[in-house]
Design a protein around this nucleic acid. Structure first.
Lengths: 200, 200
DNA sequence: CGATCATTTCAGTAACTACTGAAACAGGAG
DNA sequence: CTCCTGTTTCAGTAGTTACTGAAATGATCG
């Protein structure tokens, strides 16, 4: 866990040779951002390195090649290669061939809304949908048709059915919110929020 | 990962023959639900066992003691104890003393909306807020005041500032959606969704 | 074609997380 | 006080995931 020491900050007295200190600060800022983003990713089931790479590409705003990434984040070639591929698979970064260059570059999508739409869609598909499906399957198994009238009336069965139903309702509503998220890019979404805020 | 053999329920006496198959089905349904819930939790940074315990308490709808949990999920006493405490800390299950009983029971909150409000609030606090704070901190460090006019005008600096700003805007909007989630229990939220759906 | 450079794969390992089981602890009853 | 019953803690370990480094593969060029 002892990665990414922040390159030690400037002596406070630096006067103003206009450009160099700005570069340094820029770097510090980027590292800060990258680190935090990585931490957040980690608690979200995306691994830290992947999240950091994405943060790097996003904040740099210019294409980087594998070696750039390796150097900047202090990771091995293998790790960089696989993580970059993973991010491409997610669709939140893109490969980029530069004319007359052999090596490949990578860049992040620039629209934050698009990035999160993609992530949200994927997580919904992978995590919420299966749960919803299971809940429905459970309800079928506890239906009168499946258990018989007498058994279906039993208190425990009723209770379970009721809990399943609450959960289903909840997940359906959440799903709809997600849909909004996914379906509307920036303009749409800020509108969503305006509507929300006005309604309350 | 090879858990969850459906445990053999050895009750000393098997009273009601006609309802027995219903009991069995009920158990199967519960196990299904528990398992899926656990899987979902795992991809969400909550560990599988904790999520499973919560699912168990939720779907059972009646207080269980430590031993019930251990038995049902095939986990050790230590694990059960710590996970139960963890869930209590989150605030999504509660300890419960039964009159004249020594051992403690646990029950899940019953309102799904409340459960998720709690989780959402906590995740926002732990994950989104720090990122927002970092972004702001970054912006300060790149401000004209901090860099000087000339440096602040440089292209890379401008670009970085712009990216930080987009990200900030996004997170603020998301935060507001979360607030709605957190602030409004069921009735409020379904209203949110109605509003949303009508607006599009 | 072989030489050169970039990329991917993967076995081995490091780092981390989750879990167990036993020991320590708590407190009520006799 | 001791005994009993239930709970918590924690050292040790099993199981998992992330990472490295080197070798294999692929691509481009003369």
């Amino acid at each position: 866990m002892a990665l990414l020491e922040i390159p030690v900050a400037t002596s406070p007295v630096t006067p103003k040779p206009p450009v160099a200190p700005a570069d340094e600060k820029l770097r510090i800022v980027q590292d800060l951002f990258i680190r935090r983003w990585g931490e957040m990713g980690a608690t979200w089931g995306i691994n830290r390195t992947m999240a950091e790479i994405h943060a790097l590409l996003y904040i740099m705003g210019q294409p980087c090649c594998t070696d750039d990434v390796m150097e900047r984040l202090n990771i091995s070639r293998g790790n960089a290669s696989m993580s970059l591929r993973g991010l491409c698979d997610w669709g939140i970064i893109r490969r980029l061939h530069k004319r007359g260059e052999r090596r490949e570059y990578f860049e992040s999508l620039t629209d934050v809304w698009e990035i999160f739409s993609i992530i949200a869609a994927e997580r919904k598909r992978r995590e919420m949908d299966p749960v919803l499906e299971t809940i429905r399957q459970c309800q079928v198994m506890l239906s009168e048709a499946s258990l018989g009238k007498a058994a279906a009336k039993r208190e425990e069965v009723q209770l379970t059915r009721q809990r399943l139903a609450s959960m289903e309702e909840f997940m359906e509503v959440t799903n709809k919110i997600f849909q909004q998220f996914i379906g509307n890019a920036k303009s749409g979404l800020t509108r969503v929020v305006k509507v929300l805020l006005k309604a309350f």
